Amino acid sequence: MPTFTLGDDRLSIQAGSYSDQITISQIARNWDALSHYPERHAAAALHDLNARLTAFAAHLDELQAMGGSLDVEAEAEQFTRRHIEVTRAWWQAESRCMSSFIVGPANFPTRRNEKRQATAHKRMGEIGAHVAAARKAVERRAFPHGRPDGPVRGSNPDAADLLRQKIEERESRQAAMKMANKAIHKNRQESEETMAQAVAEATGWSLQVARAVIAPNAFAKRGFEAFELSNNNAEIRRLRSRLDGIEAKQQEPGRDTEEDTAAGPVRVVENVEADRIQLKFDGKPEEAVRRTLKGLGFRWSPSH
């Protein structure tokens, strides 16, 4: 497992075969022309870097605990190597910036400094962009068909079964909500504890959940309101419609044809298993062709 140890004067990094030590004294010079206290900036920079590395490692652990297929060590090493490169690029860009309060106002290169500050700001943005892109990429590798707590994708071979499970859960909740409301209405003259007990017996929920259900809302109403029942019903209908569409699509045979186009011969594949239409070229198409296809919703896939 990767380890990141933040001490008083340094950050020690170990991720797979990659190891590094970054000390405050090594990087403090990047803020010499920006602050009277460059060491404070350096300490804050190491603290933020450690937080980002630790958060990504925790994200890897979370994905693995959810059942994702991941080589945590390799993923942590790849992210750490690249993220430190991106972070050092920002620090280096900062080192080229100046403050007139530090270097003095005489002959201060205002326009040149503004350009350098813009570059530093861009490099800082690349740090957040790298974290976001890396998280998205690692989730895609861990769960090629989507996270188990996310929406069901049509490309998932188990999509139909997952949708049936979601429908059953929704239908079960719909029935339980109705039973809870019926129990509340039947015991409306009784004490709250008696009412909660009746709800628990009718639905099979715990007494703690039943007490929360019977608690009056801001309008002094108990139980589930009509909109909650109708919203749940609407979601059941949506899931059933989605299931019908997926089952119908699975019954259709995939088609594979070749078309003559201005860009040359192109195979048009209706890939039912992957739930997508694929256009396959003999080689990488021209930039103009890729740009046109991208505008129509297609994405270039180097691996295919």
Rank of each mutant, 00 (worst) to 15 (best):
D9K: 09
A15D: 08
G16R: 11
Y18L: 14
S19P: 01
S19Y: 08
Q21G: 01
S25G: 01
S25A: 12
I27L: 02
W31S: 10
L34R: 14
Y37K: 13
E39C: 01
R40F: 13
A43G: 10
A45Q: 09
A51D: 11
F56N: 04
A57N: 13
Q64P: 00
D71T: 12
E77P: 10
E77C: 09
Q78C: 06
F79G: 07
V86F: 03
V86T: 15
T87V: 10
Q92C: 00
E94D: 09
M98Q: 14
G104R: 10
P105G: 08
N107C: 04
T110D: 01
Q117C: 07
A120N: 06
K122N: 04
I127D: 00
A132H: 09
A137N: 08
A137F: 05
R141I: 13
R141C: 07
A142R: 03
F143I: 03
R147A: 15
P148A: 05
G150M: 03
P151E: 11
R153W: 03
R153M: 12
R153T: 11
D158Y: 07
L162Y: 00
I167C: 07
S172L: 07
R173T: 11
M177N: 05
K178L: 13
K178M: 10
N181H: 08
A183K: 02
H185A: 14
H185W: 13
E192Q: 12
E193V: 12
M195I: 06
Q197F: 08
A202H: 06
T203V: 08
V209M: 10
A210I: 06
R211G: 03
A212C: 00
A215L: 08
F219K: 14
K221E: 11
R222M: 10
A226G: 01
A226E: 13
F227Y: 14
E228F: 07
N232K: 05
A234S: 13
R238M: 08
R240Q: 15
G245V: 03
I246R: 15
A248C: 02
A248Q: 14
E252M: 15
P253W: 02
G254N: 09
T257D: 13
T261V: 05
T261H: 06
V266G: 02
R267C: 02
N271P: 05
R276E: 14
R276A: 13
Q278E: 15
G283S: 14
K284T: 11
P285M: 04
E287Y: 12
T292M: 11
K294C: 01
G295I: 09
W300K: 05
S303R: 12
H304G: 09
